[in-house]
Design a protein around this nucleic acid. Structure first.
Lengths: 306, 306
DNA sequence: GATGCTTACGATACCCGTAAAGATA
DNA sequence: TATCTTTACGGGTATCGTAAGCATC
């Protein structure tokens, strides 16, 4: 048994059992991949894969159980390297963050600029992704931190920590009729076509829920991934926007106004997420503390199982 | 990085950093050991060992941290094999138990004979050891189960389960004066020279505690590892014996009598111990259930962290 | 016919073990 | 001096990649 064999097994799952793809992902040859799998199965005395002729279709029962252990082993070998680097290269390395547009554009810049000042030798890698992709990047161990408002909770290998809380706000073109009412309610808002986030992004579900509970079927005439796009179309008077408040800046967004919507919408929680069992570099803990001063290193460690 | 390197690192700790010994333990050459260590340190960029000239003396701080992870990795690779064998070779394999004389001789035979009937193809390996050795065998992963009354609690990587409870009994030569009193107390018993277990074995500490609390300094004229030896000397009238009740059989030990000592001594708990994180074969769970019918496989698994 | 897996084979690199030299107690 | 570690070097083996053959879709 060797590490290459284990890497290959892990990769087969990630590549949907396409060995050619596995070989490419691991920068090696198909033939080697094929042989390694055969060798490992022989050594363990178990067929790991369900086969149909020459094609692999999925994992057998023992295969499923074994892959879990294989992932643990590979995770721990990655941890060996992280631990070593924490000693040898303090403040040097990479910080990979996967997050949504909203965070990348509006909530992280100030934190990241602080972090860069403190750790100029840490290379920052910012993935901008959907919540689903963020989970995948996290569980694959390709990023250190995931940040999103949706889709991070309830994943077995992912630990989440509340980052901050917020409620959606309504933005309208300057001079829009709604600006005349002191604090418009959902019925008044629902009377206009609405532009907001795609389903599964940035608390979109909570926007819909608010209308549903008020018995209103809103006319969501457009949806977009990010507030920049939404704001552009609101300025073009195609509808009114419902966006995260972080995304509205009265100084910059001069063509728009934000309404006083109070608690019309449910509260959203934006989470920071870490992979359980993954050792992270010291500066990652520092980054977390920049996000939220009361982040305690030892409680974070306990939460992710270290 | 490869598994041999990790095995070597683990073994250096076990062999007190004597690389020659490591090489012998792993059936390889010193030179290879030396080189592997060097290579691994180079790859991780960290000195794992404190050196004095050419000799290794111990682990550095990063070394200590890394060895923990190395042990995890190697444990999980062993688990891979166990899991595979649970599928391929049901009821075939090895069951290694480390226990003290008392258990091996008196409490286990009936269980083991039942087990052998059920799993004739499982090779039994019975280590008879001191509690300290039992802990070592367990943590090194050389045995599946440890059984003892002493020294198993409070070890980080070892989970313990109460097996059964018992109190020491007093055995005397037939016709001994003490047999005349209905239920002798500690003062009466302490008047005679006593033969019992070595310190650290089979609840010896509780025997002493009982006398101490009664303000008596007993004359422990002999101590031995096991009840067979103790009983022999009691028969020779060198003293009276204080032994585990399992070790007295009125039919066989015809030269002796057991006194009615009621609750003179504190209760002892004999524990079954498993190594945390170690996957054990299905038949090991069956063995545990033979020991105690209410052993629940899933609670055991949870307790050992699987 | 295009894609994907296996087998065969040759080149390479890695790992091991012997042996010699140097260091430590 | 005896024990222990390092370094150097040669032999063997395992791994890798190319290429050909075959199965699957």
């Amino acid at each position: 048994m060797n590490f290459q064999q284990l890497r290959i097994v892990r990769e087969t799952v990630r590549c949907n059992f396409n060995l050619t793809e596995v070989a490419n992902a691991l920068f090696t040859s198909q033939s080697g991949v094929s042989k390694h799998i055969k060798d490992l199965e022989e050594e363990l005395g178990v067929e790991l894969y369900i086969r149909k002729g020459k094609r692999l279709l999925g994992l057998t029962e023992p295969g499923k159980e074994l892959v879990k252990v294989v992932e643990k082993i590979l995770q721990e070998t990655a941890n060996l390297k992280s631990i070593a680097q924490n000693y040898t290269s303090q403040g040097v390395g990479e910080l990979a963050i996967a997050t949504t547009h909203t965070q990348a554009r509006y909530s992280l810049p100030s934190i990241i600029s602080q972090f860069r000042q403190r750790y100029p030798a840490v290379h920052l890698k910012l993935y901008q992704s959907s919540p689903g992709e963020i989970v995948q990047l996290l569980t694959r161990g390709e990023v250190d931190i995931g940040i999103a408002t949706e889709g991070l909770e309830g994943i077995a290998d992912v630990a989440v920590f509340p980052f901050y809380r917020w409620r959606h706000t309504v933005v309208v073109p300057k001079g829009h009729p709604l600006t005349r009412s002191k604090s418009p309610d959902l019925h008044q808002i629902g009377a206009y076509p609405i532009i907001t986030y795609h389903a599964g992004f940035t608390g979109r579900a909570r926007v819909e829920r608010a209308f549903n509970q008020a018995g209103i079927t809103p006319d969501i005439c457009m949806s977009a991934l990010d507030a920049d796009v939404i704001k552009s179309y609101v300025e073009l008077e195609l509808g009114i926007g419902i966006i995260a408040p972080m995304a509205f800046d009265p100084d910059r967004d001069t063509g728009l106004e934000a309404l006083e919507t109070g608690q019309l919408f449910e509260e959203n929680v934006t989470y920071l997420a870490l992979k359980r069992g993954r050792v992270i570099r010291d500066y990652v803990y520092e980054f977390l503390q920049l996000c939220k001063a009361d982040f305690n290193r030892s409680t974070v460690k306990a939460e992710i199982g270290l």
